[in-house]
Computed example of a mutant assay.
Amino acid sequence: MIDDFLAGDLTDVEEAVRKAAAAEIMPRFRQLAAHEVVEKKGPHDLVTVADRLAEEHLTASLTALLPGSRVVGEEGVHANPAALDALHGDDPVWIVDPVDGTRQFVHGDPGFATLVCLAHRGELLASWTYAPALDEMATARRGAGAFLDGKPLRPGPAAPDAELRVAISHYDFTDDHEKRVLARLDTPGVVPRPCGSAGLEYLNVARGTADAIAFTWPNAWDHAAGLLLVAEAGGASATVAGEPFRIGGGNTMPFSAARDAGTLARILGLLAA
């Protein structure tokens, strides 16, 4: 079933992502009322009516495209943590972040994205990173490359003498220990900065406008689409323990994804120092 689905052109999935954003996200961009924004765990962890409705829209459309599949979405897991168990099952799973970069969305910043990744038994198979306010769609398929608006993504290695541009976990979402670990990247030859939308930071790595990311949180919906995008663009990723990042959890934090293996090794070496 999953092999037959992947053998298609997958344009129906891309269209489903675009339709969800057009119906539920963009009409509310810069139009949110105060009661449509709610704090989850604190003032920096926000959810909006657009997040919830877009995830419901995607859940219906994606499972219709692939009968027997399940959805693990940020808002669904927040409401029912047991939904995360689907990542360990035998059914194909759509990993969804309906509005990645909700804080940016709430503040009227176009730097947010809808992230969708299809996985099966822990393997990332295909992904879609859509920035509706920027009208950018990045796609990847296992073994078939990464693309931005239909054009191949292939950043290649960083220049030997270039400063490495690294997006790191935003300070508002890190504890004191994580701040100390990430501070190891504040060294000559590396220029760290707080990340925006995680999905768009992965896209920046895949197209070479950033060299790496270094993140300290494990949520599958934030990373699955981007990890496949970077891998298919020729990049590399690993945890600070030198292991592949597992979408089902159990990872040693932090982890990094980079435009090439050499850059990844350098970033992990600093984080592990």
Rank of each mutant, 00 (worst) to 15 (best):
G189S: 11
A86W: 01
D175W: 04
H177R: 15
D176R: 15
R70S: 13
Y130F: 15
T102P: 05
T129G: 00
P110A: 10
G111F: 13
A119E: 06
H78D: 14
V72F: 07
D135S: 11
G111N: 14
A140R: 14
A79I: 01
I168K: 01
T187K: 08
D135C: 07
R193D: 09
R184G: 09
L164K: 03
H57R: 15
V190W: 03
A83V: 14
H57Q: 12
D85F: 01
D85A: 14
P110Q: 12
F147A: 13
W94M: 03
D109T: 12
R180N: 00
N80M: 06
L164M: 05
Y171D: 13
E55M: 02
H88P: 08
V71D: 10
A83M: 15
H107R: 11
R103C: 08
Y130Q: 09
V99L: 13
D176T: 15
R70T: 07
P192T: 11
A54R: 02
N80C: 04
A138D: 03
T59M: 12
L87A: 03
A159Y: 04
H88D: 14
T187N: 00
T63F: 13
A158E: 04
W94I: 07
E163L: 12
L87W: 01
D90T: 10
P67E: 00
P160A: 11
L164Y: 03
I95Q: 04
V166N: 04
S69K: 01
A138R: 06
R165K: 14
T63M: 14
V93K: 00
S127F: 06
T174W: 05
G145V: 05
A158V: 05
A144E: 12
V106E: 04
D97H: 13
A131S: 14
V71Q: 03
V93P: 02
L118D: 01
A119P: 04
V190N: 04
L58R: 02
E178G: 14
T63Y: 08
E55H: 03
E136V: 04
D135L: 07
S69G: 05
A162Y: 10
W94G: 00
E123F: 10
G111H: 14
V190F: 03
V96G: 06
F105I: 07
A183H: 09
V191P: 01
L134E: 13
G122R: 06
A167C: 07
R52N: 09
R121Q: 15
V99Q: 11
D149P: 05
D91T: 08
G68H: 05
R184W: 00
T139E: 00
A113S: 14
L185M: 10
R184D: 06
